[in-house]
Nucleic acid binder design. Structure first.
Lengths: 210, 210
DNA sequence: GTAGCGATGTATCGGGCCGATACATCGGGG
DNA sequence: CCCCGATGTATCGGCCCGATACATCGCTAC
């Protein structure tokens, strides 16, 4: 999961670990509060070993001071890494539909073609619906067996599940009719890839108002 | 976290692993789908080593057949284990306020005294409020920097956070005025603690839902 | 000036939890 | 009679986390 997120961010611009962590935190703030360094650095090492990213010392953005005793390490995505990123984005395993997996995929939807977006949204919807049904079962069948607080917890969970299904339904409808999310702001932004890199991102059929 | 949940369930009645997993799934269905055996069995071993639970072979509920080649293993909580459970229930570290930690604690609120309940609810509220503020910041300050999908994700997360704060607020109010959750069903059940232990579980008024 | 402090920055270690996998028994339906 | 799905116990590799350690930079306070 982290792999996908890191590759995605490095595709926009090279970064060092600390920066990466902050970007991760704002981009995936809904999913996980902040990635631990105990996760980040080993993962970066792993990606490097696999050849998806490369490490280059000292950073040009820090021009004047920085006597560089121990320079920061800047990570950059490779061609193989970009390929890997595209693969991860498009392919959907079961882990694509849990909270974390879905969140990461969704966060990079602007780099995903519409067919894949729909596939993922529908997969996620199915997942949440199953969860919702499970909770309904518990609340109807096992109601007498559980104490008031446990029941309240289930009720709150059920409410959240129902709400998410509705949210997903709305997103799916929008996708089908060729609209961007909905949003109050949000430019079409992020060119990121050089011209002539990937076929995705269909004509971008504008977006009309809510 | 799992430790607390297992101790809590075994306090009600002895069980074997498979059963434990199912109970865990229904009681904590909102928190984690189903606990993995790769987690459960090592944890049970750990609890056993620590002396909180004991393992006894073959199960009386399976009276007639069961030629018992490899009997099921029934786990039972010890006196030390009950003490440990009480400690874990009352003490609140930072991990008590994340999604999983809070969920488990809340699920055992009927075994917790009111003061602790309030402390935990307020701690959780603070946590969720921080998260909410973080999301608001991103949405106002970094809005132009993020694509439409990422923004939509943040918006949805913000909505969920606001909703949870309201939910917690309601629960806190109820606690202060000496009411149980709200519930549609759910007996006062589970004596569990010997008489003369805690004052909790006051009467239960009502409150409707939409 | 210098001492502390908070932000920036890289890195490791022990441990919890997960998914995949293996293996074994039991009741029932085809 | 045989296979299948539910019941049941158990291990292994691997991801990810929190705690910890260490070093530099720019700022404020004394």
């Amino acid at each position: 999961m982290l792999e996908l997120a890191i590759l995605g961010l490095l595709q926009e611009t090279p970064m060092h670990g600390y920066e990466l962590r902050k970007e991760l935190a704002t981009k995936l703030g809904t999913i996980r509060a902040a990635i631990s360094y105990g996760t980040l650095y080993p993962t970066l090492k792993r990606l490097q070993t696999a050849g998806w990213i490369t490490e280059s010392a000292s950073d040009p953005t820090m021009i004047p001071p920085m006597t560089s005793k121990r320079g920061r390490v800047v990570y950059k995505i490779t061609a193989d890494g970009k390929e890997r990123f595209a693969d991860l984005l498009a392919q959907a395993g079961p882990e694509t539909y849990d909270d974390a997996g879905f969140g990461v995929h969704f966060a990079f939807f602007s780099r995903t073609d519409r067919a894949t977006r729909l596939r993922i949204l529908e997969g996620r919807r199915r997942r949440v619906e199953e969860r919702r049904e499970g909770l309904r079962d518990v609340l109807s069948r096992a109601a007498g067996r559980l104490d008031a607080y446990t029941l309240e917890l289930q009720r709150h969970g059920l409410d959240a599940a129902e709400r998410e299904v509705r949210w997903l339904e709305e997103l799916i409808t929008n996708e089908r009719s060729g609209r961007a999310p909905a949003g109050s702001a949000g430019e079409l932004d992020i060119p990121a890839t050089e011209p002539g890199e990937s076929p995705p991102e269909p004509p971008r059929p504008h977006q009309d108002r809510p």
